[in-house]
């Protein structure tokens, strides 16, 4: 069976520093996958390469059998780690913008979710709090009928209530035909919804597996495994 994501020996460096150093993994459909790793492990670089924003130095990245390009951008909904809808735009304008750019954007779904959160079309992005912006951004990107959702640190710097909303939104969007890849440090909050985890370290896959299997194998929660694998000691991580 063809995998949705196939990455082989992916390398990318910035000014001599290796951000991705021979990363290889594959993902099937119908999964929520956690991309876990310490700061600078290469999570954001990996997502940006997959989203077609950064080029690779070498290796292969295939999404649904296609090399990264305009075609794969149509299959991926990438939620960056910063807010892309800034300024004095109204929510209504942003919804129209998304509709025009992405033909798979489900306007009704977005509007229903926004209404549920008590947002109005006239509300301006500039007047919103950080948490509200995170909610709006997530709702808009998750309202696409994409095959692969790339969520870069969606839980960072948001309050517990917003985290809960984000997790609920991910679950409501997720289906058998798509896969959600979430990069996060906040493992505890998402652990229960993850089907699989990929732990990356120094630009390559350190550990990958089904969450249930890993829990059974290590006799610990994913959060505990993560802490053990990335435990920091003075001068670097313990495992280095």
């Amino acid at each position: 069976m063809k995998e949705l994501v196939e990455i082989k020996d992916l390398k990318r460096s910035f000014a001599g520093k290796k951000a991705l150093d021979g990363m290889s993994f594959s993902l099937g459909t119908g999964k929520i996958v956690g991309l876990l790793g310490e700061n600078g492990a290469g999570k954001t670089t990996l997502m940006r390469v997959m989203a077609g924003l950064l080029t690779k130095d070498s290796g292969s990245v295939r999404i649904d059998g296609e090399e990264i390009g305009a075609k794969t951008n149509g299959l991926i909904s990438y939620v960056p780690d910063h807010f892309v809808f800034g300024g004095f735009r109204k929510i209504g304008t942003v919804v129209t913008y998304m509709k025009r750019i992405f033909s798979d954007f489900d306007e009704k779904k977005a509007e229903a979710l926004l209404e549920k959160l008590h947002f109005t079309k006239e509300q301006k992005m500039a007047s919103m709090s950080k948490g509200q912006k995170a909610q709006v951004q997530l709702v808009l990107f998750m309202s696409r009928k994409a095959k692969l959702f790339l969520l870069d640190e969606p839980l960072a710097a948001v309050d517990p209530a917003t985290r809960e909303f984000i997790i609920k939104t991910i679950l409501s969007t997720f289906g058998e035909d798509n896969t959600v890849l979430i990069s996060t440090h906040v493992v505890m909050d998402v652990e229960l919804i993850l089907d699989e985890v990929i732990m990356i370290k120094n630009g390559h896959v350190h550990l990958q597996g089904e969450t249930d299997e890993l829990r059974e194998k290590y006799g610990k929660t994913i959060n505990e495994i993560f802490k053990d694998e990335f435990r920091f000691v003075e001068g670097g991580s313990e495992n280095e």
């Binding site: 989203a51 077609g52 924003l53 075609k71 951008n73 149509g74 960056p80 892309v84």
Partner: peptide, 13 residues
Amino acid sequence: GSNSALVLAAPCS
């Protein structure tokens, strides 16, 4: 700008 991630991630060459 900050929204370049959105503009450039569009399914368009």
